[in-house]
Design a protein around this nucleic acid. Structure first.
Lengths: 110, 110
DNA sequence: ACCTTACGTTCATTTTAATGGACACTCTTT
DNA sequence: AAAGAGTGTCCATTAAAATGAACGTAAGGT
């Protein structure tokens, strides 16, 4: 039997924003999709789905990716509140479409 | 091959808080676990895992449940920022352990 | 105190996400 | 303008989440 699910507009919107925040964070940190995927221990395909705002990915993985690019949900200075969908999309268009890796090393201690 | 994953402390913490917020929201709204699960179109077992802060559940489902109990991530008045883990645990102990349904009807339009 | 019912938790089965490969397309640098 | 690399996206296979049943526990109304 098919298990089709429905998501409210609020949920879809939240997913979309979250995905965009992650993408913005990644690009800001000059990381390629592959790099971030490797660091999170997931495939690029999954990261793609996350940034796209798909409802399917596991929340633990998404949170982990968000953490890796500096998107924190439970801190007062989080950008989660101040940023809206339109603003994010706008910001994205002003950023490079593809990232060129040129990084030395990054430490992942949380 | 086993796909064991690791989650940073930040991630685990965020999951824990998110789960507690959902639980608090549910109890505040006087909904049983079964009611909320039904309304979200999921099983009580999955809701159990969500409230427990497990990393596995799909983010779309978790967001949907959060939405249903009034936990919004992308609104300025969200409690996500002001509540910490300890406070939530504290608040939970002051709430009823089980919910008794006595509701007429609730509308779910988002 | 009792009886109802919500909760915590586990387990086998079913359904779905995660993966890695693949390919076309699009940047970006030279 | 050509090359190299990053991205969007699909697909078959594999691993894991979602499910529903089940059972003991315990909370709360009467």
């Amino acid at each position: 039997m098919k298990r089709k699910r429905s998501y409210s507009r609020v949920t879809r919107h939240a997913l979309s924003i979250f995905g965009k925040l992650i993408r913005v964070g990644r690009i800001e940190r000059n990381m390629t999709a592959q790099e971030l995927a490797d660091r999170a221990g997931i495939s690029r395909t999954t990261l793609y789905n996350i940034e796209k705002g798909a409802p399917g990915p596991e929340i633990g993985i998404v949170f982990e990716v968000a953490t890796l690019v500096g998107v924190r949900l439970f801190e007062p200075d989080s950008r989660l509140l101040t940023m809206h969908d339109e603003r994010l999309k706008e910001k994205l268009t002003l950023m490079p479409q593809s990232v060129r890796p040129a990084k030395p090393e990054v430490d992942d201690d949380f």
